[in-house]
Amino acid sequence: MQVQDLEKIFQDKIDAEIKIEPKDWMPEAYRKTNIRQISQHAHSEVVGMLPEGNWISRAPSLKRKAILIAKVQDEAGHGLYLYSAAETLGSSRDEMIADLLSGKAKYSSIFNYPTLTWADMGAIGWLVDGAAILNQVMLCRTSYGPYARAMVRICKEESFHQRQGFESLLVLSKGTTEQKAMCQDAINRWWWPSLMMFGPKDSESTNSDQSMKWKIKRKTNDELRQQFVDMAAMQVKVLGMTLPDPDLKWNEERKHYDFGEINWEEFWNVVKGNGPCNKQRLAARNKAHDDGAWVREAAMAYQAKKEKKRNAA
């Protein structure tokens, strides 16, 4: 069969909403885009544990500590679901991890911002996880089967992340003057980076949008970002706080909130490795990987020893 025919069959399947499975024929670019996107997503979950891990030992109560540990464990789990989905496309776990550790592969820039106060745990849950959920809900319907199934599992668990964050901010918002100030400060610092999570504006695209045609993605950056702004603008009122954007205003005609311009220079700077914590995050991952090397080796040696014993018996 000609490649053009295979491509036509492939696109017909996508158009008919039939999922693509690991052993099905797929264009090389589809495979590559999925590997890149799924592994970057996995790396984001793994690196995403670091800013929160910072606060596990400093959580203000046993309850908050238990919640935070559970959330960080979920993120490790989400990373693993995603790595195994990417592996079905022929990328090895070792390669993906090596690319993360060398700085070749990327992860969501949001995790290159520091977590300065306890209120950041709440703001991350509400805003960062809130932004991620919009993307993830859309990805539950992505065209590659293993990715879609991983996202369904992730979405089931992710809602707790956002709710605990909002609830944690809600408690602060009803607290002392200092606690209220801390809550507002965290919102101020996390708002813009959260908006950046959706990526550049649609109008800045010069490429035809292959990801949409292949239904890897189903909504544009601006659609998702608008959805997020509309949601957060309502929810912030419940907290009695404000979002740090003087241009944020309900537009009756559009039935959406208008909002101010994102600082794109900052966005590209952080993507390119010059954010406040890029180096620290990679150093932490590398240290964990190196420090764990003897454990991985010992486990294999133990397995080999047991195998030998079994064969001898």
Binding site: Q40, K104, A105, K106, S205, N207, K217
Partner: peptide
């Protein structure tokens, strides 16, 4: 700028 999405940063733009 090529279009990319959250979780999909092309390598040529990422300063990798």
């Amino acid at each position: 700028i090529k279009k990319f999405y959250y979780g999909d940063i092309p390598e040529d733009n990422s300063g990798s």
